[in-house]
């Protein structure tokens, strides 16, 4: 079986002012090839002005077993949202 090609995640910025967005991945053997392959696969229709690639193996995820511990505790903190607060009628610009 062959080896040597890596998977790279691709992020594209469409216009200045917009955030980079994850669009998918490509296979490539080296960094230069990775940006070129990403350019050829994901920006053929004018979708890009800037591009990042990063080896998939370098991306760190939340441990699968701990996902609940990471994310559930934020669900009972409604006071972080503007809708939590009551503002008297007639008060503006809040």
């Amino acid at each position: 079986m062959e080896s040597g090609d890596k998977v790279w995640e691709v992020f594209v910025q469409k216009k200045s002012g917009l955030p980079f967005k994850h669009v998918g991945n490509v296979h490539a053997y080296d960094k230069k090839m990775a940006v070129q392959n990403a350019r050829d696969l994901y920006t053929r229709r004018g979708e890009g002005r800037e591009l990042w690639v990063v080896p998939t193996s370098e991306i760190v995820s939340v441990p699968l077993d701990d996902a609940d511990a990471f994310f559930d505790p934020s669900e009972d903190k409604p006071y972080r949202h503007a809708t939590f607060y009551e503002i008297p009628d007639g008060v503006k610009h809040l």
């Binding site: 090609d5 490509v26 296979h27 490539a28 090839m33 070129q36 392959n37 050829d40 696969l41």
Partner: peptide
């Protein structure tokens, strides 16, 4: 030689 390069050559 592989699909990504196929696409590059087409471009």
């Amino acid at each position: 030689p592989f699909l990504e390069e196929d696409i590059a050559q087409s471009n």
